[in-house]
Nucleic acid binder design. Structure first.
Length: 488
RNA sequence: GGGCCGCUAGCUCAAUCGGCAGAGCAAUUGACUCUUAAUCAAUCGGUUCCGAGUUCGAGUCUCGGGCGGCUCACCA
């Protein structure tokens, strides 16, 4: 039998003993008067007064007839001090049988120890929940990455920094909501289960609805539904929610991820750009109190205006290649090969350009930067530039080399939109599994008329990575997707 | 999916060239009424991820499998 089981057996025995003594090891509630952090903060007013706190025993030092322990709650931790001559022999002996990991409620008065630590002199305590399994080790905490993700609760108990990441994540999302609401956007919810998926280039998860006897897809984006709302007369909408993409898992990809998408009537991508830089600065201010963040050791100011560069110019700067001089796939791929670049020669011209951006441009975009004007082929939902119809009015926003925003002037010409879908279908037939499918229902919506609209998508997980200085998306998702262990 | 690396006590980690599988913390017992990585003494705790193989002998070498990390491809 493993040690863990031994320990569990011993604690189960303690549990039974408590029950036999008429003590409920899992009582219903306990009314506390203070959080541990409040008790410490308000020590000057509370010294000598009785307080009631509750939390988990995280350390214990038994010195014969006196015992010190630390109790942790959501706000922090506080030391408690229990003495035999205060509690009485019976209660004190019971106290000594408590285990690290147990939840207790403690009442007593606040004082300061010789070492200067604010402490509760325990006058009474109540067991609130018995623990049966040991907590991670106190010195090194929990470092086994797999265990940290699979049993995130242990990670949160053992590693305060991890807890902090998720507090920041919550604050970032709240700041984003506040920003959007203050700008007059209303928050909406659109279907996650969709009869047709669209709004991004990705493979979907498929599922099946029994009663309707039909295949449904988990959404890969909220885009097409949100734009139907613009058709319907809402002029500023946004949605924060999960998207699902049936693709590989990596340091930057989780199969389900959170995105914020917004659409604003009578705005174009330049307006959206202005909004994004305002939003980022606002969020940093709300979360950190300044318009600055540190990522990978570099401190960056998010204060508007951000650097703006066209994709064409960015590629010229990074590689010396001006794709406009190579108007077809053959000439461009020949030039790229000549420059010694490695790439899949079967890629279309647009995807070659995309390849150069992600390989040579993105890693250099440390300072907040907008890359503008993308090839029309990789942007089937964006409006063409009037003077350069092979490009669209689209930008991506980068911080620290990480793409955090994607936006464009929305294509509201239903004729052009239908043609773009047809083009996507051709690419799909040619083997591109991520090309869009035809969404007739969406085109019909556009045919009823959609005002000029600026749209935006922000990957919240990646944004939180930048805001919390994390290199892996798994560190900002509480329960990242992992392979399930095969049962023996 | 490909490549590289990892998996040893509940946790964090050792183990020389292939030669008795160890430490700290946790746990158990005892001492101890201001400790805080409490201290002191003693004790318990192992399918070395799983399965084969080579060998007198495998944590260590070989093969297969599982899980994880990084990386490449794809994507946000």
């Amino acid at each position: 039998m493993a040690e863990g089981d031994d320990l569990r057996q011993m604690r189960l025995a303690k549990l039974e003993k408590l029950r036999s003594e008429g003590i409920d090891p899992y009582p219903k509630d306990y009314h506390r008067t203070h959080l541990t952090a409040q008790a410490i903060q308000q020590f000057d007013e509370l010294a000598g007064e009785d307080v009631r706190i509750a939390g988990r025993i995280v350390s214990m030092r038994i010195l014969g007839k006196a015992t010190f322990a630390h109790i942790a709650d959501g706000s922090g931790r506080i030391q408690i001090y229990a003495r035999k001559d205060v509690l009485g022999e019976e209660q004190y002996d019971d106290f000594r049988t408590l285990d690290i990991g147990d939840f207790i409620g403690v009442s007593g008065s606040l004082f300061r120890t010789k070492a200067g630590e604010i402490t509760i002199e325990t006058k009474g305590y109540t067991l609130l929940a018995k623990s049966l399994r040991p907590l991670p080790e106190k010195w090194h905490g929990l470092v086994d990455v797999e265990k940290r993700y699979r049993q995130r609760y242990l990670d949160l108990i053992a590693n305060p920094d991890v807890r902090k990441i998720f507090e920041v994540r919550s604050a970032v999302i709240e700041a984003m909501r506040t920003f959007m609401r203050e700008r007059g956007f209303i928050e909406v919810e659109t279907p996650a289960l969709q009869p047709l998926y669209g709004g991004a280039a990705a493979r979907p998860f498929e599922t099946y609805h029994q009663a309707l006897d039909r295949t449904l897809y988990l959404r890969i984006a909220t885009e097409l539904y949100l734009k139907r709302l613009i058709v319907g007369g809402f002029e500023k909408v946004f949605e924060i929610g999960k998207n699902f993409r049936n693709e590989g898992i990596s340091i930057k990809h989780n199969p389900e991820f959170t995105a914020m998408e917004s659409y604003e009537a009578y705005a174009d991508y330049i307006d959206v750009m202005e909004m994004v830089e305002q939003m980022m600065a606002f969020m940093a201010r709300m979360v950190f109190g300044k318009e600055e963040i540190t990522y990978k050791g570099q401190t960056m100011r998010l204060t508007p205006p951000w650097r703006r560069i066209t994709m064409r110019q960015a590629i010229i700067e990074a590689t010396g290649i001006d794709f406009r001089q190579y108007p077809d796939q053959q000439t461009l791929s020949a030039k790229m090969a000549e420059a010694g670049m490695k790439f899949d020669p079967a890629l279309s011209r647009a995807k070659l350009i995309d390849h150069m951006v992600s390989t040579y441009v993105e890693p250099k975009l440390i300072e907040p930067t907008f890359v503008m004007d993308f090839p029309v082929e990789v942007s089937p939902l964006a409006k063409r530039k009037t003077d350069e119809p092979d490009l669209v009015e689209r930008f991506e926003g980068y911080i620290g080399g990480m793409e955090i925003a994607n936006a464009f002037t929305e294509l509201n010409d239903p004729i052009d939109q239908r043609e773009r879908f047809v083009k996507q279908l051709e690419e799909r037939a040619a083997g591109d599994e991520e090309a869009h499918v035809m969404d007739e229902d969406y085109v019909i919506a556009l045919e009823h008329g959609m005002p000029p609209t600026g749209g935006l998508g922000i990957g919240i997980d990646r944004l939180v990575m930048v805001f919390t200085d994390q290199q892996s998306i798994r560190e900002v998702i509480l329960f990242p997707q992992l392979r399930t262990r095969r049962e023996e």
